[in-house]
Each structure stands twice: as structure tokens, then as C-alpha cells.
Design a protein around this nucleic acid. Structure first.
Lengths: 215, 215
DNA sequence: AAATCGGAATAGACCGGTCGGTCTAATGAA
DNA sequence: TTCATTAGACCGACCGGTCTATTCCGATTT
């Protein structure tokens, strides 16, 4: 079995500076332009990289985007680690904290939204590779959140009969929709409203849908 | 009012058959490929149209996509008309009916999702024209739904303190996220779960998050 | 230490293909 | 006639990707 050099994010190699630079700039460009509108030439010009280097480090454009996605997912998992594992806080608060942190990072990027959602929309119709990969990304994130919701369920913070996996998938899905809206409107309101609604509803309760008072 | 059953993309022109054909095929291709991956050549080949006809009816590719979007929105408004105006049914049931109808149409198209959401994700970062237009599309749909929710509020079907416009925006946003997930997984589960959750939560209540039993 | 070697990485000219878009001419209906 | 529409050859630009050449740098040899 030949060694699969593609799509590896892990750090068994030093990951040369040039490759890092390309992936970093590629993330920004993919967030803004999406896949099809991001040109290799533009990426090389923006980073001052000759073409030979790019095709030395990446098999082709698809391989590159998949590795950018791996890098993005690694950052997401880091965020999940940082938020969900703080055993001193109630599990629902940890989940909320993760999404509030994510929302902050969206703003810092200028409301370009979520790379996974963006590439998913653009490519799921034309690339089985991306479709499957991105579905797996969402599933992985939801899996992490489901674990935290299960803690909440066992503490009685959410109803015992809940299907935590379904609730976690739902949260991720709604989040992506709100992220699109926030991207379109260049403001975080949709994200905040969605999070308030979800947390209110899942915790069993009162006050649902009574956000900001009507004007 | 003209008979013009199909779309009122433009004012009151009879809308030539060739133009109709291009818009119809363009909708399918834009749903599957998105904007940047949809080639004019491919569209012309698929419809047997010479290039001269295309550029006679449309200024350029952007103009074409915008008109496809207009046509799509007209269909959405037709769906809203058909579902939301049936005064014999409770308003919340009408809202639900609209989304269930929409979900059925997604399946019939092979789970290509929503054109508005797809183009929104792909183009909002690079085209101010599309960004503003698509934001307006979502706003218009949410406005229609908010009207129906207001009826529900006045009947006491949802809490009196609700901000119906916010609730309607939220519904549209979460729907789009679930539509993306359903597209990625080629199945409607995410859409159904989302709708159940929303309706349960907004109506004030019980049973939230207790969908299908775990396997 | 100096010389040498070899693969990794850089460098950019170059390629075929396709893209969106233009142009001129033929055709059809009023 | 007149003008909207059809028809498709044609265009320059740019795309992703290949190719050959060069440079860099640590390991090996002496």
C-alpha cells in the first residue's frame, strides 16, 4: 500500500514555511472567493510564491483546497477543545461559549462566514470528494457537541428524553444558516438570535422568541 | 394583469420562448453547478441555443443569473401565496405547510437545495450586487412569513411578547442551514428535524428535541 | 574542514483548453 | 422595409497544470 501523501494535516513533517504561507493565504482567499473563483495565479501573486513551489507542495488545486479545509478543521477542533472541556462550567454554557467564540472570529474576518458551509454549498453538487468530506466535517463537529449535550442531559439541564445527537446536528445546521445570513448582512445579529432561541428552547423553555422588543 | 403565467421577471413583456428555455435550464444548472462553474457554452449546448440568442436576451452572465434568480423568487412567492393565504387553516399550520412543500420540491430536484442560499454563499464575498439582492430575497420571504406569524400571535398560538419579524428571520435562516445539510447528505432529515424543533419551540413548548427515537 | 553529492524547494517560461463576450450575417415576421 | 431574433465563427484573456532549469542545504566522504 502506497503512502497517501494527500490530505494530511498532521504534523509528522515540519510543514515548510512556504506551504504554511500558502495554506494561510488560501484560507482567506477561499473564504472570500470560494473555490472556483480563487485562482492559483492570484494566490501565488498574493504570497510571492512561484508556481513551481505550489505544485511541489500540492498535487493540484483540489488537493490544496482539501488541505486548507483540514487546517480549518484543526482550528475548529482546537476551539472545541478550549471551550467544551472546561469541567468547571455547566455543559450548556460551554456549548454556547464555543459558538460565541466562533461568532467573534467571524467578525474579525470581516463576516466571511464559515469555510465548511461555503465550500459545501459551492461544491457539493459537482464534487463527490468535497461533498463527502464536508458532510464528515459537520458530522464530526456535531459529534463533539453531542457529547457535551449528553453531559447536560445527565445533569437534567435538558429533558431526559432528548436525542442529543439530533439536537447537536440541528444546532450545527441552524448555525450555518445563520452564518450565511450574517455574511449577507455583514452583521452578527442572525447568529446571536439563533443562539438565544436554541438555548432557550433546548433548556426547556420560557421566553422563547422574545428577543429584542419590537420597535 | 397579463396572463403570463410563468414569471414576471421583467415588466410586462411576453417573454420569448427562447428566453424562457434559457432561464429554465439556467435554474437547473445554477442549482447544481453554482455561478462560477456554470459555463455559458454548456448552457447553450444543453438547450440547443446559439450564442447570439443568449446575448440578445441577456446583457451578460451576471444579468442572466439575476434574471434566473428573479424567476426563482417569483416561484417562491407563488408558493407563499398558495400556502399562507388559506384563511381556513391555523396560521402556524400554513407556515409549516409552505416549508413542507418546499422540502418536497427539494427532493424532486435531487436535493440541490435552495438557489438563493447557494448563490448567496458563493457570491456574497465577491459581488456587492448579488450580496444585496440575495439579502433582499431573504428579507422578502421572512416578511411574508412574519405576517402569518403575526396572525398566530394575535390568536394566541404563540406568546404575545414575540417579535414575529425576528422569529421569521430565524426560521428562514435555520431553514437554509438545514437545506445545506440536506443537500450534503442527500436526504431530507435535517429539514424535518429543524421544522419540528422550530414549531415545537415557537408554539411554547413541550417535547422539544424529542424527535425520532435513537436507533 | 573542504569537497561533493542529491534530493527538496524555488523559479518562471510555456502550453492547450476553455472562458465570457463580440462581430457579422442570415432569417423571420409584421 | 424594418427590426427583432437566430446563427455561429471568432477573439483575447486567463485558467489550471507541465516542464526544465536552477538554487538551496544538509548528509556523506575524504
Amino acid at each position: 500500500m502506497t503512502k497517501d501523501a494527500t490530505t494530511k494535516t498532521d504534523a509528522d513533517s515540519p510543514m515548510h514555511a512556504t506551504k504554511q504561507r500558502l495554506i494561510g493565504a488560501g484560507l482567506q482567499m477561499l473564504l472570500k472567493h470560494g473555490y472556483n473563483d480563487m485562482g492559483i495565479q492570484a494566490l501565488l501573486a498574493a504570497t510571492g510564491t512561484p508556481k513551481g513551489s505550489f505544485y511541489h507542495h500540492f498535487r493540484d488545486k483540489e488537493d490544496f483546497a482539501l488541505q486548507v479545509l483540514d487546517s480549518y478543521m484543526a482550528a475548529v477542533h482546537d476551539g472545541l477543545d478550549a471551550c467544551l472541556q472546561d469541567a468547571s462550567r455547566p455543559p450548556l454554557a460551554r456549548v454556547r461559549d464555543f459558538f460565541e467564540t466562533t461568532q467573534r472570529s467571524y467578525r474579525e474576518e470581516g463576516y466571511m462566514g464559515c469555510l465548511i458551509g461555503g465550500l459545501g454549498q459551492e461544491l457539493s453538487g459537482i464534487s463527490e470528494v468535497f461533498r463527502a468530506k464536508i458532510a464528515e466535517c459537520f458530522s464530526a463537529i456535531a459529534g463533539r457537541i453531542a457529547g457535551c449535550l449528553e453531559e447536560a442531559r445527565q445533569r437534567g439541564d435538558i429533558p431526559a428524553g432528548c436525542n442529543v445527537r439530533e439536537l447537536a446536528d440541528l444546532l450545527v445546521d441552524c448555525w450555518e444558516g445563520a452564518a450565511l445570513r450574517s455574511r449577507l448582512e455583514r452583521k452578527p445579529d442572525a447568529l446571536n438570535t439563533m443562539l438565544d432561541f436554541y438555548m432557550g428552547a433546548v433548556a426547556g423553555g420560557g421566553g422563547v422568541g422574545q428577543g429584542t422588543a419590537p420597535a
